[in-house]
Amino acid sequence: MMRMLMVLLAACVSLGCAAQSRPVRVTYVLGGGNEQFVLPTRIGNKRIDLVRFYVSSVELMRGGKPVWKEPGSYHLVDFTDSGTLAYKMKTPEHIHFDRIRFHLGIDSATNVSGAMGGDLDPAKGMYWAWQSGYINFKIEGTSPDVPSAKHEFTFHLGGYAAPNATLQTVDIAVREGKDIVIGLDVATFLASIEMDKVYHIMSPCAEAVTLSAKAAKCFSAL
């Protein structure tokens, strides 16, 4: 029995399929530290129906330097699809890190490289049809402050080219040795928008850049 185990172990090592990684799990939750939400939900006088965004180029950092970069790093996080809210990263064993850094959105090179698969598939509802480009961040709902008939707000934030490039970098402190839980403080984000004036963004524009920067600031590790 012992011999068989040794053989199996040796075979695994030499074929390179040994468990070399101890995956770090990343989970996304909607809400800041105090309160978390499941969509559709109400926050104050607002109703939120949809929150969806891209996370890309994930890096784990230590002492301000990257210690691990996730290969092929593109994740669609969709709070209406629980299957997208947690995944394991293929991190190496004994990795030490104190921060996680990622892009909120899709880089410009990917935006001009044609059809992609997986989370980047244009059929995922995060690609503009009438003008090429990924939507980096989507949030939809209603607010009594919105002066339109149905009081709906629709923020589809994207745009990869200057001067309306919306890609943001998020860099947040995490606790080492624990799985990473990233919260999006959606209440703070929505409170930062004057909904009586801005409630409908569906193309690259200066306002989309401003809101993308605000959204990036609403992420934290819980």
């Binding site: 001009v112 490289s113 044609g114 049809a129 009438w130 090429s132």
Partner: peptide, 22 residues
């Protein structure tokens, strides 16, 4: 408006006066 041949069909498929689909 479209930056790559791959993405071109998305425009007429979604345009309300062309194919009006998704």
């Amino acid at each position: 408006a479209v930056n790559h041949l791959d993405m071109q069909p998305l425009a007429p498929i979604a345009h309300p006066a062309e194919m009006a689909s998704d």
